[in-house]
């Protein structure tokens, strides 16, 4: 009996906060649910889903999410990898460098949001000032007030936040890269690029997979950073799916429709995780078979 007593408090909380809501969300998504229940909810089958997929707002928000993630990820990855390779050469005082590196990752997304909003401020912002002084632009750009530049601004903020995570992970991965192979390649006359692409990169495959999986999940789920910077605007250009879920449920008070949107997001993330895990495990199995 004892183990169950030990488990009880944690499982009770999980049941109320996680399990019940997951099931409830599934059920809500096929009902018409009003925020303030009157006569009870009405079963409407797949209507919520049909409405969502036919709604411009929702489909646009999927594209916003895709844009946000697809622009941020490669930039953050390339910069993060570059930084990891440089930091790998730093032996003495490395903790000092990585300590600074952790700061963007440590502070709350909300603070990052306000910070970049201020940096991108049209009249008092540092970004406009720097670009003006360098002669790159002739007049202040209202970054957060135009759709295209607003997307660029949130991507920049997002890259700033995630690059450190990618660097830390890849740096840890680099510690495991076998030096023997590296030296062998050196002796064979491989140049620095060949060594990087044929020795280093293949051995980092596993870490890179994990980094892409987690970074994608986190980016697609982001609410705070974008909401603080643009509230999803202008013209819904940065209204990603989580913000749409929030708006449908708590501004338009359509809880069932919101639940359906949330479920679509969940299913997308789940299938992506499965795909990644399968690919990663297949690699591992291949390696196990080979050895």
């Amino acid at each position: 009996m004892t183990p169950y007593y030990f488990l009880l408090p944690a499982m009770l909380v999980l049941a109320v906060i996680i399990l019940y809501p997951v099931v409830s969300n599934l059920i809500m998504s096929v009902y018409k649910v009003k925020l303030f229940r009157g006569a009870g909810d009405e079963f409407i089958g797949m209507t919520n889903y049909a409405k969502l997929l036919g709604s411009r707002t929702f489909v646009n928000s999927i594209w916003s999410s895709v844009r946000f993630t697809v622009y941020s990820l490669p930039v953050a990855f390339v910069l993060g990898l570059g930084m990891a390779l440089i930091f790998n050469e730093i032996k003495k005082y490395r903790p000092v460098f990585t300590g600074f590196l952790l700061v963007p990752w440590a502070i709350a997304p909300v603070v990052t949001g306000y910070m970049w909003r201020w940096l991108f401020h049209d009249t008092f912002g540092l970004v406009n000032y720097a670009l003006l002084s360098l002669g790159i632009i002739d007049a202040n750009i209202p970054w957060l007030a135009q759709p295209d530049t607003a997307v660029g601004a949130v991507v920049v903020a997002n890259v700033w936040r995630f690059m450190p995570y990618i660097t830390i992970m890849l740096l840890a991965g680099l510690q495991g890269v076998s030096t023997e192979l590296y030296e062998a390649a050196h002796v064979d006359g491989a140049n620095i690029f060949e060594r990087f692409f044929h020795v280093t990169l293949p051995q980092l495959k596993h870490v890179i997979g994990v980094v892409f999986l987690f970074a994608t999940i986190w980016m697609v789920n982001d609410f705070a950073l974008i909401f603080i910077m643009t509230e999803g605007g202008p013209a819904k250009a940065t209204q990603v799916v989580p913000i749409t879920v929030y708006r449908i449920a708590f501004e338009h008070l359509r809880l069932g429709k919101g639940a359906a949107a949330a479920l679509i997001l969940l299913l997308f993330l789940l299938s992506m995780s499965m795909l990644f895990i399968r690919v990663l495990f297949r690699e591992q199995r291949k390696k196990a078979d080979a050895s």
Binding site: I18, Y20, P21, I217, N221, F223, V245, A249, A262, L265
Partner: peptide, 10 residues
């Protein structure tokens, strides 16, 4: 692994 927004409403 559950994203927060997927249980926000219930």
């Amino acid at each position: 692994m559950l994203p927060g927004s997927s249980i926000l409403i219930p």
